[in-house]
């Protein structure tokens, strides 16, 4: 564990808590893509099956359980409890165009051709693009609430910090996982446009609005 990894994990945790708090306090999931949230739940469910097969640390297990349970809770809140506020008309990204190619790629490019390893690879690839329905939704509505922007910034920062963690681990531990690094870079690149808007607008007290 290094400082980048720790701050990255905390940023990921913060993102999820921010999203849940926003929904709970406003009793609404307006502006949030349910499709992205389903993809994140799928990501965690397929990645953390190793909870049943290998133990790494208490920290590791607690975080995995937290991520799986909160992602399911988020999906539940969106599709059941606060369903009336879900903006499905703007959440029209075709997720099959992500899940099917990513599934195929996980079969073809993986560290080992075994069920758990393929599922892990699938989750890494899927996570890298899971935010696309959310970004697509924002581009359709042309705006994002400030709290949603904070959520996205924390969520995007997490993988960017993981890249620093991988650089650190490569130099000091000789650790290098090509699949995670490439997918992590793709994931971070997808957020760059948003990061720019966040820094130039939200941090100066303005809302994100996009030209039509």
């Amino acid at each position: 564990m290094n400082i980048f990894r720790l701050i990255g994990d905390m940023s990921h945790l913060l993102a999820i808590i921010l999203l849940l708090l926003k929904m709970w306090k406003t009793r609404s999931c307006a502006g949030i893509s349910g499709k992205s949230q389903i993809l994140f739940a799928l990501v965690f469910a397929s990645r953390y099956l190793d909870l049943f097969t290998s133990f790494v640390s208490v920290y590791n297990s607690v975080m995995k359980i937290f991520f799986i349970s909160t992602s399911l809770l988020t999906v539940y809140l969106m599709y059941f409890k606060f369903r009336a506020t879900y903006d499905s008309n703007h959440d029209t990204f075709r997720v099959e165009f992500l899940v099917i190619p990513v599934g195929g790629l996980a079969f073809l490019v993986n560290h080992e051709f075994s069920p758990l390893e393929i599922l892990w690879t699938f989750s890494i690839y899927l996570e890298s693009v899971a935010i696309l329905p959310q970004l697509f939704m924002m581009s359709k509505t042309g705006e994002a609430e400030t709290i949603t922007s904070h959520y996205l910034f924390a969520l995007g920062s997490y993988r960017a910090l993981y890249i620093l963690n991988w650089v650190y681990r490569y130099y000091f531990e000789g650790f290098f996982d090509l699949i995670a690094v490439v997918a992590g870079c793709v994931q971070t690149i997808l957020y760059c446009d948003f990061f720019y808007l966040y820094i130039t607008k939200v941090l100066k007290g303005k809302r994100i609005t996009l030209p039509a």
């Binding site: 994990d9 990645r47 190793d50 097969t53 290998s54 790494v56 590791n60 975080m63 995995k64 390893e117």
Partner: peptide
């Protein structure tokens, strides 16, 4: 050799 099944990262 590192055990690739022991995923330390989240």
């Amino acid at each position: 050799e590192e055990d690739i099944h022991k995923k330390d990262e989240l």
